[in-house]
Design a protein around this nucleic acid. Structure first.
Length: 587
RNA sequence: GCCCUUGUAGCUCAGUCGGUAGAGCAUUUCCAUGGUAAGGAAAAGGUCACCGGUCCGAUUCCGGUCAAGGGCUCCA
């Protein structure tokens, strides 16, 4: 049943051609761009006389099926550039591709022909469409895409198809997509009442509910608890600044269009901060430092604002206002290693706690393109080999990303794989050999002279919002006991036990648990269902039995734990005191 | 920002070929006093996203704006 990856690639690529053939039946005047295979199928970009709507796809798909059923051969042939330009005279996009190939020194190009259709293509393809497995593909959607990915060039129409090795594999894929939809953080955000958006406030500006804010505060507290052990100190900064700060840092020139601008009544220009590092440099710059006082480690969880293009905003993943769990370490160059090691420890502990698999990307400079970076090659290579040594020392799974460095220094970026195996970029550690210089940051060395400062940018979650979007989907909203916005639901069997339920809840709350009581006029079954749908970790039912247990001692009760916690915690019986002692709920 | 799709009650959705709208859940009240995933009844709840145009009349048709979704482009 299983199919070689090469064969699947050919099936997808060949179906892209079949797709173009089907579209040409409907729109003979269509101009073809490109049609490659992708991870989950294929697509074709075309310039069409009218916009496609979803209703067009079934017709195109059934035409594709008919074409496949014709058992067409794919044959390859070689042609001179001149010939190709003539053959594709009325296909401007193909012509451009041919001209580019010619410019690269190609003398000939290849066509793949299937039936009456031929396309400029380097292959490979199936020998015959009869090799396409039954029901292995499905047109999924149409979307716009710029010609050659350039926003200044025409917008083409892209038709996507999914394609796998068999009908069952297509079904499996669609089931995975469904599963991902169920745990989509935008959906769970509403269902679990974590955050909301308002048209009056604006897009990309999330509002956090009481429950959602508990998550934010606890995650931040957790990061802070990890940091404080390494000598970090918390600082605070205003959310706006004169533009002078960014002129000096160099961000103004590059990013001024993406900033929110404020003009005061006196005509002074301010901006909302898009990042925190320049502010933090000014805290460091307030006085002179001895080498003995280094490093200075400033931690600051704070909101940043970027005027993103409206089309880029999605859920909590990309926002106009977002909270960075930012930290900047100002240190001596000889302190970089131990400081980074500390950060790696924090990252490992933090992500390990949630069951993410981490992979580090060493984001290095591209030696072929030194113009894009500041500083000399020797400094870059030294710091990069140090980063690599550290990552190896920690035994982290890593790969090197050439050309992924920031212009001011190399980075270690972390990718977390979630429970569905999807990678997300999360934490980042960046060496900055540039900004301290721009702001003239120094410390006084042993011999009394001014020494250059190295700055290390660190974000553990990156942004709380984006991390939460990843975490919600990773856990499908089943937050661990310590993090759950509501930890325990106390459910009264009937209204005569409302008092006992309230009393128990109050005891648990006094000790810091987050508890709700359900005293509504509903059946126990209904109360269980409601609490379960809210994914509350523990449920306690209070009725005659529990009240009787309290006759000569403290009330005892059982806790019905959420499925994923049932193995971890005993169901009891507990007293309020035991529950608080035996089940760790602190950060 | 660009292309396409969508916007009806707090949520999920019907519906009106142009004559100002309906269900389930949630909410409120009443009945029931119920032991581990939906007990029963009633009520209330909508400027049909917003603004403009056509029309005797627009939630419905047209245009614009805003917002959401799928892509493209971008991401310090």
């Amino acid at each position: 049943m299983s199919i070689e990856p090469d064969q699947l690639y050919k099936i997808r690529h060949s179906l892209a051609h079949v797709l173009a053939m089907a579209v040409l039946e409907v729109f003979p005047e269509a101009k073809l761009a490109i049609g490659p295979p992708v991870d989950n199928g294929f697509y074709y970009d075309l310039d069409l006389p009218r916009a496609l709507s979803p209703e067009d796809l079934p017709d195109i798909q059934s035409r594709m099926e008919k074409i496949v059923a014709q058992k067409l051969d794919f044959t390859v042939s070689e042609h001179s550039i001149e010939e190709a330009l003539k053959d594709f005279a009325d296909q401007p996009y193909k012509k451009e591709l041919i001209e580019d190939l010619a410019a690269k020194g190609e003398k000939t190009v290849t066509y793949y022909t299937s039936g009456t259709f031929f396309d400029l293509c380097k292959g490979p393809h199936l020998a015959n469409t009869s090799e396409v497995p039954k029901a292995c593909f499905e047109l999924s959607h149409a979307a716009g895409a710029y010609w050659r990915g350039d926003e200044k060039r025409p917008m083409l129409q892209r038709i996507y198809g999914i394609c796998f090795e068999s009908r069952d594999a297509v079904k499996t894929y669609k089931a995975q997509v469904e599963e991902a939809k169920k745990r989509d953080h935008r959906k769970l955000g509403v269902e679990l009442d974590l955050f909301t958006f308002s048209d009056l406030v604006g897009s990309g500006l999330p509002l956090w509910t009481p429950k959602g804010n508990i998550l934010r505060l606890l995650l931040d507290e957790y990061v802070w608890n990890l940091r404080r052990g390494y000598g970090y100190e918390r600082v605070e900064i205003p959310h706006i600044t004169k533009k002078d700060l960014y002129e000096k840092s160099g961000h103004w020139e590059k990013f001024q269009d993406e900033l929110f601008h404020i003009t005061t009544r006196e005509g002074h220009e301010f901006v909302m901060k898009p990042m925190n590092c320049p502010h933090h440099t000014q805290i460091f710059a307030r006085r002179k430092w001895s080498y003995r006082e280094m490093p200075q480690r400033y931690s600051n969880t704070t909101m940043c604002y970027r005027d993103e293009q409206s089309g880029e905003l999605t859920g909590l993943s990309r926002l106009r206002s977002f909270t960075q769990d930012d930290a900047h370490v100002f240190c001596r160059y000889d302190q970089a290693q131990s400081e980074i090691l500390n950060v790696l420890n924090i990252i490992e502990q933090f992500y390990g706690r949630f069951g993410f698999t981490l992979k580090a990307r060493l984001s290095f400079h591209d030696p072929e393109n030194m113009g894009a970076y500041l500083g000399d090659a020797a400094t870059w290579e030294k710091s990069e080999s140090e980063l690599k040594a550290l990552v190896e020392q920690k035994g982290l799974d890593y790969f090197v990303g050439i050309g992924e460095a920031a212009f001011y220094g190399p980075k270690i970026d972390f990718m977390a794989s979630d429970s569905l195996g999807r990678p997300h970029q999360v934490a980042t550690v960046q060496l900055d050999m540039l900004m301290p210089g721009r702001f003239g940051l120094t410390y006084t060395g042993e011999s009394g002279q001014e020494e250059p400062v190295l700055m290390i940018h660190v974000a553990i979650m990156g942004s709380i919002e984006r991390f939460l979007s990843v975490l919600i989907e990773h856990l499908a909203g089943n937050f661990p006991y310590w993090l759950a916005p509501t930890q325990i639901a106390v459910l009264a069997v009937s209204d005569q036990f409302n008092g006992a339920a309230e009393e128990l809840a109050q005891k648990l709350r006094t000790d810091g648990l987050r508890v709700v009581v359900d005293t509504s006029a509903e059946s126990v079954g209904k109360k269980i269902r409601t609490a379960s749908l809210q994914k509350i970790p523990g449920k306690i039912v209070v009725g005659q039995q529990e009240v009787d247990s309290a006759k000569d001692a403290e009330m005892t009760f059982k806790v019905n734990w959420r499925t994923d916690l049932a193995e971890k915690y005993s169901e009891g019986p507990y007293t309020a005191q035991n529950l608080i002692q035996d089940v760790p709920s602190a950060v």
